[in-house]
């Protein structure tokens, strides 16, 4: 069973990677000059608080023991207490997570809706004016910072035309759709530029491939060729690309959330930084890493499911 073996091998590779991720996050706060306990508890902490934190983190123990403590705490879901929110870091993150996931998923859907059809139009009209126009527009899109796209949408569609709210979040599914449309669109305009460029190249590659030329020569109708061969292969490359750009997408949501005041993980990260809330920064950094690696894993599995060649290599 090659498929199962592949999955197991893939999962095994995640263990050392994740250990390193934990080490990086652990060292992040240990890199701080001065007493980590003071940094974690904040300036207003009492001596008793400091002692409690030193004890909990094992700051009087050797570094390896400290890491072991951090590691076991995290595995038990204990990310410490947030100075800013005055509750457990885990609780705050779980509270904010759905908004960010919704925003990211919405952005992915929108960017597929934008990039998919346009990539087909561009690839099928290669070298002619529709191709040139589409590529030029997306090239400009790629040069725009996400916060700038967000501000433009915010100014014209929300503040000026009043079609959308200028920020915040809604209740229920439709409320979220309404409130998160502009933030998602902001991210989508950026990611669709990346997707469009690669999808166009992928479609052209398939169109030029021998098996498609063979199908043509056999006299198969165009619709069947596009549906059976081109779409399937284009789907594989799109999923791979989407998976690989999940980091970009998360970076984008972080910026968008601050522009539109969306109460998600990204804005929380920024609030945590300005409040020097190190436990929260650590927890959020870890959460982002977990989200990305879940997506990486799903991408790999999906890819091996769609493309048998992947399982053999």
């Amino acid at each position: 069973m090659a498929g199962l073996q592949y999955i197991l091998k893939r999962l095994a590779l995640m263990i050392p990677t994740f250990l390193l991720v934990m080490i990086i996050i652990f060292l992040l706060v240990r890199m701080l000059p001065g007493d980590p306990a003071l940094a974690i508890a904040g300036d207003k902490a009492s001596d008793a608080d400091l002692a409690a934190i030193r004890n909990r983190l094992g700051l009087n123990e050797p570094l390896l023991v400290q890491f072991w403590l951090f590691f076991t705490n995290v595995l038990q879901g204990d990310l410490g207490r947030s100075i800013l929110m005055r509750t457990s870091v885990m609780g705050v993150i779980i509270e904010r997570l759905p908004t960010t996931v919704f925003l990211a998923a919405f952005a992915v859907s929108l960017s597929l809706l934008i990039a998919g059809p346009l990539a087909f139009v561009a690839a099928l009209n290669r070298g002619r004016w529709p191709d040139t126009v589409i590529r030029t527009v997306f090239q400009v899109g790629l040069s725009m910072p996400v916060f700038y796209i967000g501000l433009i949408l915010l100014t014209f569609l929300a503040a000026h035309l009043r079609w959308f709210p200028v920020g915040g979040h809604g209740d229920g599914f439709t409320g979220q759709l309404y409130y998160l449309f502009l933030p998602s669109m902001t991210v989508a305009l950026y990611t669709s530029a990346i997707i469009m460029r690669n999808l166009r190249a992928a479609i052209i590659e398939v169109l030029d491939a021998e098996y498609v030329q063979f199908a043509r020569a056999k006299g198969l109708p165009n619709r069947l060729i596009l549906g059976r061969h081109v779409l399937r292969n284009a789907l594989i490359s799109t999923v791979t690309l989407l998976g690989l750009s999940i980091g970009n997408l998360m970076s984008g949501t972080l910026v968008t959330e601050t522009v539109f005041a969306v109460p998600g993980l990204g804005r929380l990260m920024l609030e945590a930084i300005f409040a020097r809330d190190y436990p929260l920064i650590q927890g959020l950094t870890l959460t982002f890493a977990v989200l990305v690696s879940i997506v990486f894993l799903l991408t790999d599995l999906f890819q091996s499911l769609l493309d048998p060649r992947m399982r053999l290599s």
Binding site: V21, V29, G247, M250, S251, V255, M269, T285, F288
Partner: peptide
């Protein structure tokens, strides 16, 4: 593998935070 597991901006921001 470990470094690309973090979104670029998140890791940069975390380092800037420190």
């Amino acid at each position: 593998d470990a470094i690309i597991t973090f979104p670029f901006l998140v890791l940069v921001i975390a380092v800037v935070a420190v």
